[in-house]
Design a protein around this nucleic acid. Structure first.
Lengths: 230, 230
DNA sequence: TAATGTGAAAGGCTTCACAGCC
DNA sequence: GGCTGTGAAGCCTTTCACATTA
């Protein structure tokens, strides 16, 4: 879901062989679940089982997988390994993705040390921070460089994905520099909206937004209970 | 009528005066944008301006706000302060929400120190970790307690929202304990599916899933370019 | 028999476009 | 003139239900 504002945005699927966005967003869930099943020694899996393991319902699983082609066996299910390959290829995880993380505060530390990246083809190609005191520190086996090095790292490491974990005030300028240096996908953890050219992809994660949504439902539950009780 | 398959899950809106889930998920964005506008000294805002500031389009803004009632002035726009109040109340942010964070690794640290919580009515009521070496450490002004204290903290502090930032292997057992102690909303950062009773709310954030979705689009762009070039 | 793959139906979300109001 | 509020249309997603196949 690229940011952008007034841009009229063409209707998502432009005619190409189209797997719906909603399905794409679930493929990583299946991949994670399949990893667990494979470790448990399963060689085949039914849509029902995969559904349970990934927290989705089975009709959705079947539809989603059907977008990748018909690789299941009726009466049996899907081959776990084949499915892992199929999904990984579809998501583009069979290649190496060098990632640059900007902003090595608590969150940047957490991201740099996060095991879930490496296991999916993401490689931390660089860490940069504006604070000279942090430069040189090693996090997860990678040394922190100064923000000045941003451009040179992006070019030297062919980084196409940048992760922004800076304060909100710095995010747009960091983003501009990433884009100017050649980054075409940005994952933004700063609580702000980023403006980017239309060909650049942005996704955002805002920790406090999720909590607020939880609070909404929590409050509702309480109001409902109070209403019934009164 | 729906033949029970997996989790029957009621159709989202249970009959009450219904603001759509998709709109709820955007309210925090508006709230954030309005904060910025207020700081900039704006007293009124049009749907177009709010749209730009929150990364949404103006038709959506108007529809979303209309679910809260008709508080705009035609020809003028919305009153910033009034909108802040309206949204905060709708989300349940006018009350204090004590939160317990479980798992004080890098991510737990980041969450405990995150400023965006306090400004929205969330208060870190406790931090717990399974590692005795971490107990006693202070993070963001709150001391880390041992995992054993989970239940007593939930009860003493009336915690209804729990945040799980443990490794995946520990998440389900932590979740079970939170729920047993009385927590009714869970924010899960562990990369796994949590089973909870139907009346408990769960939201999840998986850092690597967002990256994978980015990779999908990134790959697509490259393939498309290569395709055109070839 | 067991489970996939898929048209068709249902539901929800977004966008359009304009009447209504300040 | 400018902007909100909102039916209606269109699009996307989910779910159903069953023919099909190993």
């Amino acid at each position: 879901m690229p940011a952008a504002s007034g841009t009229p945005r063409p209707p998502a699927r432009s005619g190409e062989r189209g797997i719906p966005e909603a399905a794409v967003a679930r493929l990583p869930l299946y991949l994670r679940a399949l990893g667990g099943l494979a470790e448990a020694g399963e060689t085949t899996v039914s849509s029902e089982e995969l559904a349970a393991a990934s927290g989705v319902n089975s009709a959705k699983v079947r539809k989603d997988l059907s977008y990748l082609g018909s690789y299941g066996t009726r009466g049996v299910g899907y081959d776990v390994q084949q499915l892992v390959h199929l999904i990984a290829r579809e998501l583009g995880l069979t290649q190496d993705w060098p990632v640059l993380i900007v902003g090595i505060g608590n969150l940047g530390h957490a991201l740099a040390g996060y095991g879930g990246f490496a296991s999916r083809g993401f490689r931390v190609a660089g860490l940069v921070d504006a604070d000279p005191a942090r430069v040189g520190e090693e996090v997860g086996g990678v040394a922190v460089s100064h923000l000045d090095q941003l451009e040179s790292i992006v070019r030297a490491e062919q980084v196409s994905i940048g992760v922004i974990a800076t304060p909100a005030a710095a995010a747009q300028s960091v983003c501009d520099r990433l884009v100017a240096a050649g980054v075409t996908s940005v994952l933004n953890f700063a609580p702000c909206v980023l403006a980017v050219p239309p060909q650049v992809g942005v996704r955002k994660v805002d920790l406090s937004i999720e909590l607020q949504i939880l609070a909404f439902h929590e409050q509702r539950r309480n109001v409902a209970v109070a209403g019934v009780a009164t």
